[in-house]
Nucleic acid binder design. Structure first.
Length: 203
DNA sequence: GTCAAGATTAGT
DNA sequence: CTAATCTTGACG
């Protein structure tokens, strides 16, 4: 196996620290009794109400309620009425900080992910936050779960050394003013599994 | 009540 | 570059 299951203590830290530390960790998902494994290669940190780019900026709503829960809770939202995105709540309860999981390298359950991705090219299974949720069959029903959960959890995996980590501004948050330029996107240098936007931005 | 825009993606 | 399609927050 890939190590111990990560619990609340892992997430109860500053959100940008957790986002950095999630790279190289393993995200596990059980679908119909089958184990799917992704090795995380791209994340983004979002703070709470002080972050103009965060969904929590306006306080709690029906959609973002889970963000205000304790560390280790999932926040899954629907974007553009089409795609789901998975976040993990960080910091103390009520702070509403969370890490968006943007991309992962598939390690196990490839056939199942292929079926869930319905005809997409194999290399595209988990590149991008919407694709990641599609590959793992995650949607709003998985909002507010407490990790570790019987069908969704994180294992220690192998954290990346600093030399293997790149960072840059968050994607798609131009509306957020100065906060749009905070370097809170973290990714594995040179990984072919990072999202399309991160590949385009890479040298 | 209306309405514009969004932490995206696939297809022109 | 644009369509697809649902939730939210601003505005009356």
């Amino acid at each position: 196996m890939s190590g111990r299951r990560l619990g609340p203590a892992f997430f109860a830290r500053p959100v940008e620290q957790v986002a950095r530390d999630l790279l190289g960790r393993h995200l596990l998902r059980v679908v119909d009794g089958e184990r799917l494994v992704l090795r995380l290669v791209e994340t983004e940190a979002y703070a709470g109400e002080t972050d103009a780019a965060s969904h929590a900026r306006g306080g709690p709503t029906a959609r973002n309620r889970a963000m205000f829960g304790p560390p280790g809770v999932t926040y899954v939202y629907l974007i553009y009425g089409l795609h789901h995105c998975l976040n993990l709540v960080c910091g103390p309860a009520g702070e509403a900080a969370a890490v968006l999981l943007r991309a992962g390298e598939p390690l196990a359950g490839l056939e199942r992910m292929a079926a869930l991705r319905a005809g997409q090219p194999r290399r595209d299974w988990a590149r991008g936050p919407g694709r990641l949720c599609a590959a793992l069959a995650l949607d709003r029903r998985h909002d507010g779960l407490v990790l570790p959960h019987p069908e969704l959890w994180l294992e220690a995996g192998t954290p990346l050394p600093n030399a293997a980590v790149a960072r840059g501004p968050r994607v798609g948050v131009d509306y957020a003013g100065a906060a749009a330029r905070w370097p809170w996107r973290f990714l594995e240098k040179g990984s072919p599994w990072v999202s399309r936007v991160s590949r385009a931005a890479a040298p």
